[in-house]
Design a protein around this nucleic acid. Structure first.
Lengths: 217, 217
DNA sequence: AAGAATCGGTTGTTTTTACAACAAATGGAG
DNA sequence: CTCCATTTGTTGTAAAAACAACCGATTCTT
């Protein structure tokens, strides 16, 4: 388990000794579930965050008419319900369901956010880590939202490429997606996006080869 | 200034005495700007968060070809750059520009996230407040993203109304938007949305009167 | 009450997208 | 190299959205 924690974003960088010191003061506990069990249900008020130690789970949304929609997959070392738990236990708008036999480590958010003042100096740095994760996710969502709220495929493409160029500080750069992944990220049709890219190339707005793009003018 | 702080999300609930105890250990400082001045620039690494005490500012994105886009307005008592500052001073992807003569209170995020252990017990609760704000924003962005990534106007409407119904725990509810605001939120054309609502009504999926909606079946 | 402004619904036209089907290019695996 | 699977580009068609213009209803102001 220590190894899994070390490979997770929340606990990476701590030594096994530090983790052994840290874990008891978080009031954490483990539980193992069978396939298809609910870890949390819509309407629940999460007072703890969960980390998958083995197996995997899906975060699922079900609408008024019963249509299901998988929002994310939670893999090993990944965390769920942290936004709900940190937002004063706001009621969950989603369900969390195991996809296979799965072990989960639960950590009381109240304990995590209360420095104990004892030997565990690492507590403060853990809080910073959590804050960093929330903020990072915030930036990620914010950026994606900026692209996706554009009205046309063309605008979404240009918004995305522009942002990458700004980040890299260069008009020439590689993107971390293939075409299908980019289309999914921008919430557009792949073929429509591909043909739009062709038009932009023909108009002299940009050039590209595979994942390498150059913005022109 | 104390009054403004008390009306802000970050500092509401503290008494003037508590605020006077709290502020010094945050290393905060004020600065006043003229209209059109840059508070922060793209690429900056924010080590502090800003709160507008008077006036207002715009968060602006400028793309590779120079097209400007206002992302948000920051009003009195509202905070900016908190996600960047909390994400280990990630470089800003936006500019922040005053819209008028504006006074800003800056708070070093490092100080805010380091409980001083002295008389100020309120420090811990302030960290919790910040965590709560980040988490809340996270949930908000997450939800909006879920609606906006639907491909059609119809799907976006149903996704949104379904979420509100789930939150209110009833198939009948009021929404906090007028038509134009809802269209903006869902990133669709108002008239197209209006006509789609008409079709949904005719098909018996829902009924509505002004801001009051009922989902059927 | 009259006039102005705002809001919401409707309709027709143009633009854009989704979808489907297919071809070309690419990249491994044997 | 050849075969096979995957990725990417292209095209035509049907569906959907954006846009613009307009009208009626409501609200606000004076």
């Amino acid at each position: 388990m220590i190894q899994i924690l070390q490979s997770s974003v929340l606990f990476s960088g701590y030594t096994p000794e530090q983790l052994k010191q840290l874990l008891p003061c978080l009031d954490s506990w483990e539980k193992t579930y069978d396939k298809g069990e609910y870890l949390m249900r819509m309407g629940d008020r999460a007072e703890m965050i969960g980390m998958v130690l083995s197996g995997s789970a899906h975060v699922i949304e079900e609408d008024f008419w019963g249509n299901r929609n998988i929002i994310t997959e939670i893999g090993i070392g990944e965390v769920f319900a942290e936004s709900y738990a940190c937002a004063n236990s706001a009621p969950l708008q989603v369900d969390v369901v195991t996809q296979e036999k799965t072990t989960v480590l639960y950590i009381y958010i109240h304990k995590l956010l209360t420095p104990c003042g004892k030997a565990c100096d690492y507590h403060i740095s853990l809080i910073r880590r959590l804050v960093g994760m929330l903020a990072q996710k915030n930036l990620f969502l914010n950026e994606k939202l900026r692209h996706v709220t554009r009205r046309t495929t063309r605008e979404r493409i240009l918004s995305y490429l522009s942002a990458i160029a700004a980040r890299k500080g260069s008009a020439e750069f590689d993107i971390p997606f293939n075409r299908q992944q980019l289309a999914d990220y921008l919430a557009v049709d792949r073929s429509a996006m591909s043909s739009e890219l062709g038009k932009l190339r023909d108009e002299g707005t940009l050039t590209f080869h595979k994942n390498h793009f150059s913005l022109l003018q």
